[in-house]
Amino acid sequence: MNLLAVAWEYWHQSFFILFAACAIGFGFGVLLSKNVVRMAFYLVLSLGSTAGLFFLAGAEFVGAMQLMIYVGGTLVLLIFGVMLTAQKDFINMDTHTQDWILATIVGGSLLMVLLFAAFGAEDWSKPQDLTDAKIESTKEATPLGLALTGIRVDTLGDSGDAVKQGKSGYLMPFIIVSVHLLVVLIGAAYMARTKKLSRATDDKSSRAKLMLFKMEQETEQLEEETYVVTHRGQSALNRTDSQDE
């Protein structure tokens, strides 16, 4: 109970440790796993934990966005992984040992530099008293949306010319990103398109029409050959009459 009390008293820290451990731990999972599907699964968990960290830092909207888009995007990776590994054995792609060593050395030194930088600036490592911090409703969705249309609500108090309304927003980047997305959509569709058009796709016809086409061919053949089939088509109501005749 005492532990619980401590954990609650420092709930921000507790959750930070939890999410950070998950994010990094599953990141290691991505790195060390050999199976593509497992890698994707670990990636999902890592990204999900990162979203948790975003929530903790007060960026609710970005956290939800992370879950929805990023994790949803990973879904596609996962599916590709499944598609490519379910049939063929692509798992056996071992990295050469020298690559591992080199990557570890470079990565380790990079991490050292980054950590040094992270803890280097005094302003950044200034401890904050977060004991009373709660996940407040930080009302950021509307300002974010407005900022994307070029209106900065949060900097209204600032007097600088650069942050005047209509000038400090992100309208231009927003439009660029939108166009970018459109281009990417078309480009991806173009790259992954069907390379060889077959008759079926040429024809723009559904399968039903294809079968109809096939049937017509066969009916032609049928007419050529002689099959003794009586097509009366009419109601057979008068069967007894015809027998009488």
């Binding site: 991490l111 950590l115 992270a118 950044w124 490592s125």
Partner: peptide, 13 residues
């Protein structure tokens, strides 16, 4: 918990 710790996690990732 400070910005640095978040940066550390970011650096690790």
């Amino acid at each position: 918990v400070s910005v640095s710790w978040y940066l550390a996690v970011g650096a690790s990732l």
